[in-house]
Computed example of a mutant assay.
Amino acid sequence: MNLSVEHIDKTFGQSKVLKDVSLEVKKGEILSLTGESGCGKSTLLRIISGLEEPDSGSIILNNKDITNWKPEKRQFGFVFQNLSLFPHLRVKDNIFYAIKRKDQTNTRLTELLQMTGLKGLEQRYPHELSGGQQQRVALARALAINPKLLILDEPFSSLDELLKAKIREEIFDLLRSLQITTILVSHQASDAFLIADKLVVMRHGEIQQVGTPSEVYKQPISPYVSDFFGASVIINAKNISDNLVKTSFGSLKVINDRTGDFQIFMRPENILISTANDYNLSGRVIKKEFKGPHDVLKIGNESTHEFISLETERCPVEIGETIFLKVPEDQIQIFN
């Protein structure tokens, strides 16, 4: 099963929600669509599933254009953000809602209940279930049709953090074991990192970056992508000679072919800290906060009003002292 989304555009009123969006999902792959709220993730999912029509562009499934197919013809399983369980139907009937009568066998029901951890709950109504159990019913219903593609739209948003972590791991382990081609929409980086083979980062209706979780985290292409996936340190810089750049915190070597002003990106965990004058970058500790197992240091150059924050294990430094920093060259990314 290969799915291609080709040059999709979608406008609601005066707002262009999707702008020339293209992506590919390969058989057995788990792809995560992620980005801030309102970036177009859910609209793209609805177009892929047939619940919305694009203004232009195509949806191609196994070399067939399915752009105008009805949702039921596509045979995609869909878990909605609000789950959309029928309150007047028991678990069994919710699961089998989209299944033809001839396929509603006890064997198939037992298989789905066992698979999703719902065995013994088939006669209950949704209001008699916990949030996690309702989540499993929605998943079982999506799996009941033997979907060519499983679509999960913010499936954990209604769960508290402790329950979310447990249910998320269970569901993702199940998807891995079944090798179901899946598209997951989430604005939580933790969801994407845990399960996705490939990340698609969206912003303002456009795709910003596509890559593995490791690639997107370690090599973001913009400040937006870097900040979305965790703490980042971005400082202004400019060339002063071959592969040597000047910053507010000192000079350092960077593999770089740019001229003029640009920005240097680093993940905080890759920055080495010392109280001895043995590193070439330095700044004054402006603020120190206790964060349980870590301290957070705000380090700055007051003359340029440029500051960075670093989370570090217990650091024997006080406010007002100078601290020295070092970053390996291969851990530095350049932004224009």
Rank of each mutant, 00 (worst) to 15 (best):
T11S: 09
K10W: 02
Q75Y: 13
Q135S: 07
V17W: 02
N236H: 11
F324P: 08
T182N: 00
V79P: 11
E169M: 07
L31I: 10
F172C: 08
V17L: 01
F76N: 09
F156H: 08
I221W: 00
F229C: 00
Q123S: 13
I323F: 04
E36P: 04
T43M: 01
I207S: 03
L325N: 09
G13R: 09
K166P: 05
Q333E: 08
G131A: 08
I30H: 04
D330P: 00
L129E: 12
K291S: 13
D160L: 03
H7R: 05
Y217L: 09
G117I: 04
F172Q: 14
L89Y: 13
I171D: 12
V233I: 13
L44W: 11
L194T: 08
G230N: 10
F262K: 04
V25G: 14
L281Y: 07
S251Q: 15
I334Y: 02
F78S: 11
Q114D: 15
D9S: 04
E313P: 10
H204V: 06
I299R: 04
S282Q: 14
E170A: 01
R267P: 07
K288G: 05
P328D: 13
Q134I: 05
R101L: 08
A144E: 14
Q135G: 05
P126V: 11
L31Y: 12
T116P: 15
L61W: 15
E24P: 00
V327N: 01
K41W: 10
E72W: 15
E318P: 02
N239L: 09
E24G: 00
A138L: 07
E24K: 01
K102M: 03
I271Y: 09
K92G: 01
P147W: 10
R108T: 14
P147M: 10
A98R: 14
A276H: 15
L174R: 02
L85Y: 12
L44D: 09
A98S: 15
S32C: 14
F156L: 06
S130L: 04
K27V: 02
R168Y: 13
I8R: 10
D103F: 07
P147F: 09
Q333P: 00
G131K: 08
G13A: 05
S4E: 15
K102H: 09
I264R: 01
A144R: 01
Q14M: 02
E29V: 00
G50R: 14
G38T: 05
K119L: 14
K246A: 03
L129K: 13
